[in-house]
Simulated assay, not measured.
Amino acid sequence: MDNFTEIIGFTAAILTTAAFLPQVYKTWKSKDVSGLSMPMLIMFFIGITGWLIYGILIHSPSMIFANAITVVSSFLLIYFKNKYGKK
């Protein structure tokens, strides 16, 4: 049962992480951050960091995998928002 549970977890992890990456790539290429909300990005970053810590604490490889990548991706969007946003 644990293998089946982790297969579901990794499938969800791959899909949700892959869905987020095009936004990071598009923002990086276009440098257009006008549609990104800094409060949302910060709340999302904190939430994903919480999920990463939770995944580590419960020893869930799928949660660690997905959330580690998404923490980096959301950090990049915060960086791009600061760098390319109107001051």
Rank of each mutant, 00 (worst) to 15 (best):
S37N: 08
V72I: 15
L76P: 07
F10S: 08
F10R: 03
T5D: 12
F20A: 09
A68P: 02
Q23I: 14
I8P: 02
V72F: 15
I46E: 04
A13F: 08
S37G: 03
I53T: 13
A68D: 00
M43W: 14
A13R: 10
L57Y: 06
K29H: 09
A19K: 04
T16E: 04
T70A: 10
G9Y: 07
W28S: 05
L52A: 07
D32R: 00
G85R: 04
Y84H: 13
S34I: 08
K83N: 10
S34M: 10
W51K: 09
K31W: 06
A68G: 14
Y25M: 12
A68S: 15
N3I: 14
T70I: 12
K87M: 13
K81Q: 03
N3Y: 09
T70S: 13
T11I: 12
W51Y: 14
A12S: 12
T70W: 01
G55R: 01
F4H: 01
M38G: 00
P22A: 05
D2C: 01
G9M: 05
A12D: 01
N3E: 09
A18G: 15
V24E: 06
F65P: 01
T49E: 02
I14H: 00
I42A: 12
E6I: 09
K26I: 14
H59N: 15
L52K: 03
W28G: 05
D32L: 00
N3D: 12
K87W: 09
I53P: 11
A12N: 11
L15F: 14
S74Q: 13
Y54Q: 02
T49M: 11
P22Y: 12
I48V: 15
T17W: 05
L77Y: 06
M43E: 00
D2V: 12
S34G: 15
V33S: 04
F20C: 03
T16I: 14
I42E: 00
K31M: 09
I42H: 02
K31S: 10
F10H: 03
K31F: 09
N3W: 04
I64P: 01
G85E: 06
E6W: 06
K29Y: 03
S74R: 04
A68R: 01
A66G: 14
A68Y: 00
G85W: 08
P22F: 09
F44G: 02
T17S: 15
S62L: 07
A68V: 05
V24T: 11
I46N: 03
T11D: 07
Y79F: 15
T27D: 05
M38H: 00
K86E: 13
I48R: 04
I42V: 15
Y25G: 00
T16N: 11
N67F: 05
L36I: 13
V24A: 13
F65M: 03
G55I: 07
